[in-house]
Design a protein around this nucleic acid. Structure first.
Lengths: 162, 162
DNA sequence: CGAATCTCAGGCGAACTGATATGC
DNA sequence: CGCATATCAGTTGGCCTGAGATTC
């Protein structure tokens, strides 16, 4: 069990250090690492609902809503009534949002290079698979909420197609 | 570069799902996953300064200070003037804090089991090492602040001795 | 004296919880 | 009716900037 705790701390440290660096790299664009993730989701497919954005970002609807409000103020996205479901809002990228994501993506390449530098290509695939198994294991615990399972499946599918 | 992005997203998803589950497991103790991390640091060694706690938790001094204030209110820790450095506060666990950590540790064992279930013991060691290399790579980027390097070294040392 | 280190205060974005309203 | 979606209010953790205090 000791090694499980060490693993948990290692994941925590890797995530936090990466998140800090990502924020630093994106600060000149005045977007955060997490907003960058949402832009990436919408670049894959937009016109989807806030719920769908939340699922694909493995995040929480309330969190996503707050982020989208900020991003709407900055004219990166639009929130318009959904055609088929009048409860929902359809989220679309603005031209500014699409352009910003493309430039932020370029900006972040050195960080991507640093991230994969210590590894062989095969190691990276293994690492991604291991982390995916962890996320699956966490999401399929008996006491979980149903949403989590959907999230993992949705995101896994999303990852495979990118 | 594409795989680097996938790796980043995988780390993010693994961390967030784990963090959610940890919070759920600890909710009956009325402490959070991050407070649990601080208690663990102090269990290893207490009487250290807030700065030292921050470094060992791979976190930020201001964040840690706010958390310690909450934990002091709940009588889990004490903040007393430091003997050698009169600028600093020395943080010590109370008996209540020490007992709570021991019980929370027991409570969390099923989650630890779930975390390591998908892997062979050797795989876990490899995984921890890989995540450690990522944290090192992130911390040693040219544009980093000096504090990050110290953090990684301190925590790495800490992990080895546990 | 200045430099370094720690504490503290205020602010912001993100993650989550729980509750409520409304459309399906 | 149950279910899904969005919204609102509140808490916590994480990071930053900047101020003040103390020690070196």
């Amino acid at each position: 069990m000791q090694s499980a705790h060490e693993l948990a701390l290692a994941i925590r440290m890797a995530y936090l250090s990466m998140h800090r660096q990502t924020d630093a790299f994106l600060s000149s664009f005045e977007i955060t690492a997490d907003q960058f993730v949402l832009l990436g989701v919408l670049t894959q497919q937009d016109g989807i609902t806030q719920q769908e954005v939340s699922r694909r970002a493995a995040s929480d609807p309330n969190t996503v809503r707050a982020m989208l409000l900020l991003m709407e103020q900055k004219d990166l996205i639009q929130r318009a009534p959904h055609g088929r479901d009048r409860r929902a809002l359809a989220i679309t990228l603005t031209k500014k949002g699409r352009r910003l994501y493309a430039e932020a993506w370029k900006q972040i390449q050195p960080l991507h290079a640093t991230l994969e530098a210590p590894f062989q290509p095969r190691e990276i695939e293994t690492l991604i698979a291991s982390l995916g198994r962890i996320a699956e294991a966490m999401a399929s615990r008996p006491d979980n909420r149903d949403a989590d399972r959907d999230t993992i499946e949705t995101v896994s599918k999303h990852l495979k197609t990118t």
